[in-house]
Design a protein around this nucleic acid. Sequence first.
DNA 1: ATAATTAAAGACAAATACAGTCCGTATTAT
DNA 2: ATAATACGGACTGTATTTGTCTTTAATTAT
Lengths: 126, 126
Amino acid sequence: MKYTKATNYALHIMAYFVKHEGKDNLSLQPLARHMNISPTYMSKILTQLVKADLIQSAAGVNGGYSLRKPKTIISFYDVIQAIEGSGALFTCEMDENQACQIERVMREAEEKMVNHLKEKRIYDIV
Amino acid sequence: MKYTKATNYALHIMAYFVKHEGKDNLSLQPLARHMNISPTYMSKILTQLVKADLIQSAAGVNGGYSLRKPKTIISFYDVIQAIEGSGALFTCEMDENQACQIERVMREAEEKMVNHLKEKRIYDIV
DNA sequence: ATAATTAAAGACAAATACAGTCCGTATTAT
DNA sequence: ATAATACGGACTGTATTTGTCTTTAATTAT
């Protein structure tokens, strides 16, 4: 179990947006060049961030991407969820009669991690 | 990112050992039948648990598997680590000049989860 | 010693997920 | 109309996970 590379990229991309907030829209090519990610793959990730309402996009000349919300309120969790989705990390595979206690503990543990990721904002680290 | 099925199995297997501690060795076939996992695949998982010193194995007639340690001290983390390994969930992929602050936060978060998994023992839930 | 019973190891195969590319389409400013 | 930009879907390659099969090694009972 590891975080995907896409999540890794997404966090760095969002950090870049937070750091450069207020300036002109950032378009794909310069952004990709600056972050050293292939433009086509990066496009996929950006589209996911748009769908999650973390950034907005504009087509056409002078288009590009920009933050959708105040830069101070975006949590690590927001970004991670945009890429990894919101399913639990652990789901019991056995067919048991009663509620699986293993699953319960595993979800408690996940919640500790998630709470930390909800508390921490991208703005905290730029 | 999800926990692997093997980890799922391993936790249930260990719960079974803790629950039935003290009785005769459990051999592969009955264990696999009882848990409804394919014997050959289960064998792989059991071998990993042996390597991690959570259980011990004995070949030959009346052989099989049994707990290696007192049943009350085995944590969820012990079992998970035996299967998933001990690498961090997140490792920064970008080449940055200074230490990656994103990675730092991600590891803090992981640590919260891990601490909970270290506190919780399989014995707590059987 | 031999046979029976059990686990371990390694090679393989299938399925799934992840990473990345390519190409055509839609949108917008000038 | 044209140029610049993002979006969408199909596709490919690779890595990981899940699972099987076969052989080997170890242990015990007779």
